[in-house]
């Protein structure tokens, strides 16, 4: 309980909260790591928005098939029980609330669950959204995983996003290297803290009136 989590440990922490048998979409980048911690016996089915359920691990060597790729255009494999479908069906599946969970990266998350993860808004930047906006609002629950601070040391959990939004009020939980946050109707609650931080230092870092929902050590809380 003394070190901040590494990216792999954040992924492992997210994976622990994914229910048995869930249908899940893991966003491009850091969230992809979550799949490394989903044991087969949990029977979690991965969706990729370019048209597949039952996606397996990244393909290697002779298994590489350029007709079988994930949303990041990386060659992947299919697991028994996989299904293919066209793009409109794939996004209907998502938008229609059939996926249990989507895990995304973020530039910023606001105290009310607004998500910014598609565009820096910088002049001259070429805008490219892909499926980010559909993913943000489509699944029953949207989890974010990110480091709490930017490279410049600014909190990415904020009162209101300054980057262009991906979705409004769509994030329910945020997993970071130093804490797990729940976005609730009453405000942002801290569920777990890792490393040297305390609820007070987190309040200072984020500028938010965080609710302390941490479980005292020794009562079954996680390390």
């Amino acid at each position: 309980m003394s070190e901040p989590l590494t990216r792999d440990q954040i992924a492992e922490r997210v994976a622990r909260d994914i229910p048995q048998g869930a249908y899940v979409n893991l966003g491009i980048g850091m969230p992809t790591k979550v799949s490394d911690y989903l044991e087969a016996e949990r029977r979690v089915t991965l969706h990729t928005e370019n048209g597949m359920l039952g996606m397996g691990p990244e393909a290697r060597g002779a298994d590489v098939d350029l007709d079988l790729i994930n949303a990041g255009k990386i060659p992947v494999t299919e697991l028994p029980g996989a299904a293919y479908f066209h793009h409109a069906d794939s996004f209907a599946m998502m938008r229609g609330g059939h996926l249990d969970l989507c895990v995304l990266g973020a530039f910023q998350v606001s105290a009310t669950g607004d998500l910014a993860n598609w565009h820096t808004g910088k002049p001259g930047a070429i805008p490219a959204v892909g499926g980010a906006m559909d993913l943000a609002i489509g699944a029953k629950q949207t989890y974010v995983m990110m480091e709490l601070l930017t490279k410049k040391g600014e909190s990415k959990l904020v009162e209101a996003c300054t980057y262009p939004l991906t979705g409004v009020g769509c994030v329910s939980r945020v997993y970071t290297d130093v804490a797990v946050f729940d976005i609730t109707a009453d405000g942002v609650a801290v569920l777990e803290i890792y490393g040297e931080d305390t609820i007070d230092t987190l309040r200072e870092t984020t500028g938010l009136a965080l609710i302390d929902a941490t479980v005292p050590v020794g009562s079954g809380g996680s390390a």
Binding site: E49, H86, H87, A88, S90, F91, A92, M94, R95, G124, I126, P127, A128, V129, G130, G131, A132, M133, D134, G138
Partner: peptide, 18 residues
Amino acid sequence: YLAGEIELEVVPQGNLAE
């Protein structure tokens, strides 16, 4: 695009499909 020689309409992927 950066030379202003092509017009771009960005559409969220699911909206594009639908």
